[in-house]
Amino acid sequence: MTGTEVAWARHPNGRWIVGDAGNQPSVVAVPPVLVRRRPDVTLDGGRVGMLDYRAASLRGIGHLETGKPRQDSYVVTVTRDDHWLVGCVADGVSDGRMSHRAADLACEKLAAELIDGLAAGPEADLGTLDWAAGVAGVNAAIHREFLHTAKVEEAALADVRALMSTTAVAFAVATQADADGTHRAVIASLAGDSAALILDGEGWRPVTAVKGDGEEVASNAVRPLPREVEPEPVTLTLRPGDVLAVITDGIGDPMGSGGGVVGRFLAEQWAEPPDTIEFANQVGFYRKTFMDDRTVIAVWVAPEPT
């Protein structure tokens, strides 16, 4: 069986199988231990201006089987004037028992920082957003919660990371087109290898570095927040009909740079904005050996009227 020949189909239980499901359909979910009130799935969808968005975060099969909570998180929201769709996805690092909270805090702080930075609405300059302040805000928030949780007075960031740390990718997209018909956007991968891809008529195209791209041997090493980092935001323009997907590596690992069967599956499913609940099902496909939490925020730019 080679990659180009396998396709996708529904399992009798309704889930999608992409390629080989392995034994994933037989996994019995057990509740997360010691973490209450954290949903296995969160889901959002809506339309603002010329954009449709869908967002889903799913507890991975590995965590379902072993009683660990979903450690991924996201925020998707709009600025006060509705001119910008703002979002963040974060992947709490599995080693840390409180990493799901680090992921939540990173998304909340980065979204809040973006909303403030984009207060000028259509006039906002994506080149002057204060990402350093965003990172500082995330670091401080995680640090503060660590002190509270561990009941200590002070702690080094390295000690904080042992209990709670996370990757984060934050973005903003203009909900209205500029005069040339394109939508301004900015994406910053602040830690780790969470990624963003764009789907257009040609297929998927990575915007940020693809984890493990070109590497012969697999590796999971990341440099998570809280940490001093110098963000390298990417500004870009989205065209009518483009789809932007901002993802954690639970979806990025099976997807790679988008050229394989998972990329083709999602490109077909996401040719148009799907029903929001079905979107979660599309993100939760079975695929042998890929068991991590999965989070995607997908943004559709309305096609040009025909």
Binding site: G60, S94, A221, V222, M291, D292
Partner: peptide, 13 residues
Amino acid sequence: SAQSVSEQGSAGG
């Protein structure tokens, strides 16, 4: 290790 294979972590496999 199987847990770590599919997850973010410093362990690297």
